[in-house]
Computed example of a mutant assay.
Amino acid sequence: MSSSAKKISIIIPTFRDWDRLSICLSALSKQTFPKSDFEIIVANNDPADEMPHGFVIPENGAVIKVAKPGSYAARNAAIVRAQGQILGFTDSDCIPESDWILNAYNYFLEHSEVSRIAGHIELFFKRDQLSPAEVFEKVYAFKQDLVAERLNSSVTGNMFAHKKVFDEVGLFNDSLFSGGDHEWARRAHANGFNIAYSERVSVKHPARYKMSELVKKSRRVGGGRAGMKRTNLCKSAAKVLWAVIPPFTEVNNYLRRYGSGMSAYQKIQVLAIKGYLDFVERLEEFKFSTGKTAERG
């Protein structure tokens, strides 16, 4: 890869996920944006897990090894190395559309007031008949329009930002195993760096198929929230008790916005799963208030 500066650096953390990373890199090799103008930095977060024999890295790509555990530590190591004026983030299980980078670059050119982009994340499913977990994901997962609108944030599965934002507000909090993207976004917003959602800056992401995957994520999110702001034991216990009440209003709002075409049974599934996952998340926060420490999810 050339040592000259690039317009864009694409950063991908990975952890024992070579098969899906290969698909992601294949999609990046087919980008309509000139290869000479962007670089790809893959941050391998398990240095002991060597790249498989015959694994193909694009000519404008590189793999670095990051020993400190956590995807935010991996991203930070790549950011320090990055040569691009713009940083683009995705994950090894994502498949960028062919015009992903070009559309992000053009969006910044056309909207000079925007410092960060929350890109669209399109779910895909194993089969036509959705599992209960997939039904829930269809309504709740990766709603980047809402994340940008309500939280001035974006998940790092599909985010672009000017490098100067990181230069000013600093790197991700690499002590966190979840929620580090939102913690960083709060700092960016507080420093006046705004964000916009773009449907055209799009990647595909597999929906979680099993309930166990949703539970694992909720525990990770609960731990990440607790890591960002420790609450006392009484408040954490109260949150657990409050989570027992089904979130009827919230779920109804999401169903009206994202549940088009769902059956009544599927809508009941969404409500039941959301209530259960809220309880799991709050219970994890409670455990942290009693002294539990964060681990990789």
Rank of each mutant, 00 (worst) to 15 (best):
G157V: 00
H205P: 02
T231D: 07
G223W: 01
F166T: 04
N158V: 00
A188S: 09
A190Q: 04
S178I: 07
K210T: 02
T156D: 04
D145Q: 13
V203T: 09
F177P: 00
S202V: 10
K164T: 11
V203W: 01
L151S: 11
V147N: 15
S153V: 08
Y197N: 15
M228L: 04
N232A: 08
V203Y: 06
S178K: 07
D167A: 12
F177M: 13
F177W: 05
H205T: 03
G157H: 00
N173L: 13
V221L: 12
R220H: 12
V201P: 01
D145M: 07
A188H: 05
A188V: 02
G157T: 02
K143A: 14
G227V: 00
S153A: 15
V203A: 09
S154Y: 02
G227W: 00
A226D: 00
G179L: 08
V155E: 13
L151T: 14
V169E: 04
E168N: 06
S154E: 03
V221W: 03
N191H: 09
K210D: 03
G227M: 00
W184A: 12
S202P: 03
G223V: 01
P206W: 07
D167N: 12
F177H: 04
A190V: 08
R230L: 03
E183T: 13
S178Y: 03
D174P: 01
S212G: 12
G170Q: 08
R187I: 09
H182G: 11
K229A: 14
I195E: 13
R220C: 07
G192L: 12
M228K: 07
V221Q: 06
H205I: 10
R220W: 10
K217C: 08
R208N: 08
K143D: 11
R187G: 09
F160N: 02
T156G: 10
E213R: 13
K229T: 06
G227I: 00
F166V: 03
H189E: 04
L176Y: 09
A196Y: 15
A148G: 11
G157S: 05
L233T: 11
V155P: 02
N173F: 11
R187A: 11
V165G: 02
S153K: 06
G227P: 00
E213N: 10
N152L: 15
E168T: 09
S212Y: 03
A185M: 09
A190D: 08
R220P: 03
A207M: 15
Y197W: 15
C234S: 13
C234M: 10
K217D: 07
S202K: 08
W184Q: 14
V147H: 09
M211P: 02
D181M: 09
K204T: 15
D181C: 13
H205F: 14
N152R: 15
L146S: 10
F160K: 02
A207V: 05
E199S: 14
A148R: 05
R219M: 03
A161P: 05
K235N: 10
W184L: 14
A185K: 05
H205L: 06
A188F: 02
